[in-house]
């Protein structure tokens, strides 16, 4: 990540260190993870101990020290989705992608993660991909959904 970019994010928050979490989230959004240099740079410029930044990076669900997938799949494991069979959806995703939650496919195309409630409980079970909601999921729909995202990629590269 370029220093210029980090500086720009810091400026957005007037380099106010109480907003360090907001800065981390912005970096996460841009880079899909928190690069070590970025954390060092923030720590130095804001005089926030590096350990605190790592503490935050590991404490909050939304932050990651490893790159996430280009298509980041969040399977809702909230209560409403759980009672409607979210575990089955997760099983299906795990076997289709051959990865476990928290992992990324070797080509970095898909990342899989479980989350606790994305606030669309009436549509459960819910899967969120790149922020888009897919409601009333079934194992069959998972297959179709994955295909759609892979095909969209192919079209883009062609």
């Amino acid at each position: 990540m370029e220093v210029k970019e980090i500086e720009r994010i810091m400026e957005k928050y007037d380099a106010d260190r109480t907003d360090v979490l907001g800065m981390l989230m912005d970096i996460q959004e841009k880079e899909r993870y928190l690069p070590r240099e970025a954390l060092r740079h923030l720590s130095e410029k804001l005089s926030v101990p590096l350990t605190r930044l790592y503490n935050m990076a590991t404490f909050y669900e939304a932050l990651s020290l490893k790159p996430l997938g280009r298509h980041q799949i969040h399977v809702c494991m909230g209560t409403a989705c759980h009672v409607r069979g979210a575990a089955r959806i997760l099983d299906k995703l795990e076997s289709s992608l051959s990865i476990k939650p928290g992992e990324v496919t070797p080509d970095l195309n898909f990342g899989l993660k479980t989350v606790n409630c994305v606030g669309a409980c009436a549509l459960g079970p819910v899967v969120q991909v790149n922020g888009e909601y897919h409601g009333n999921m079934s194992a069959l729909k998972v297959e179709r959904m994955l295909k759609r995202y892979s095909e969209a990629d192919k079209e883009k590269t062609e």
Partner: peptide, 25 residues
């Protein structure tokens, strides 16, 4: 202020810490 996904941060004293820029515990 945006939270970043931690259930316990919704507890009042944790939320206060989070707004101060600390870890939301």
């Amino acid at each position: 202020k945006r939270g970043a996904g931690a259930f316990v941060s919704g507890e009042s004293s944790a939320l206060v810490s989070a707004i101060e820029g600390q870890v939301g515990e």
